[in-house]
Computed example of a mutant assay.
Amino acid sequence: MKILTAISLLLFISLSSFSQTDSQKIIALDLAWEKALLESDVVFLENLLSEDFIWVHDHASLTDGKKEVVNRAKQIQAGQMDNTRKRISRDQKVLILEQTAIVSGFTVVDRGPTPTTYNYMRTYVKVEGQYKLLANHTMAIPEE
């Protein structure tokens, strides 16, 4: 009985650390998404975004797919003006169920004159061993 309890405890600890590691990897990937947006990293965006990617912006004012996000990054790389100076994420929470990871949190985007805080929820799906960003929803938080 003691052996069974010990094995159960070790299994629980192993699984807990495994999911924590996965959560940390997802947060790192999500931070890399923010960096890629800031730097208009076309190659990273092309590799991260699912072909069916959808981004619903603030109050559904705009909906983008992979093509639009990548094209915008290409245009900025080609010299189009971009006034985004910083993107800082905070309070990330990760939920993982099988091959799907949901990340929610806040991103402060500084485009001047004052930064805007967005609440976001992103859905990542593991495809062939690699997470792809399938969906992103952002909503501006009103200033108080």
Rank of each mutant, 00 (worst) to 15 (best):
K2D: 15
I3V: 10
A6P: 01
I7E: 03
I7R: 04
I7W: 00
I7N: 02
L10K: 05
F12L: 15
S14F: 14
Q20I: 12
Q24C: 07
Q24S: 11
I26W: 01
A32T: 13
A36Y: 02
E39C: 04
E39Y: 02
S40N: 08
V42P: 00
V42T: 09
V43P: 01
L49E: 00
S50L: 06
S50R: 03
F53V: 06
I54V: 14
W55Q: 06
V56I: 13
A60K: 13
L62V: 12
T63H: 00
T63W: 02
K66D: 00
K66M: 01
A73W: 00
K74T: 07
Q75M: 14
I76G: 01
I76W: 00
A78H: 08
Q80G: 02
Q80M: 13
D82C: 14
T84L: 09
R87T: 07
R87K: 15
I88S: 03
S89F: 04
S89P: 06
S89W: 02
D91W: 04
Q92Y: 06
K93A: 12
K93I: 13
K93L: 15
L97V: 14
T100N: 05
T100L: 06
A101I: 11
I102Q: 02
I102T: 09
I102C: 03
F106H: 08
F106G: 01
F106W: 08
T107R: 07
V109E: 01
R111W: 07
R111C: 10
T114R: 03
P115G: 13
Y118S: 07
N119C: 06
M121G: 02
M121S: 08
R122V: 08
T123F: 04
T123P: 02
K126L: 09
V127Q: 06
E128A: 13
K132V: 09
K132F: 03
L133G: 04
L134R: 04
L134P: 03
N136W: 03
I141R: 04
I141Y: 04
P142I: 09
E143D: 07
E144P: 10
E144H: 14
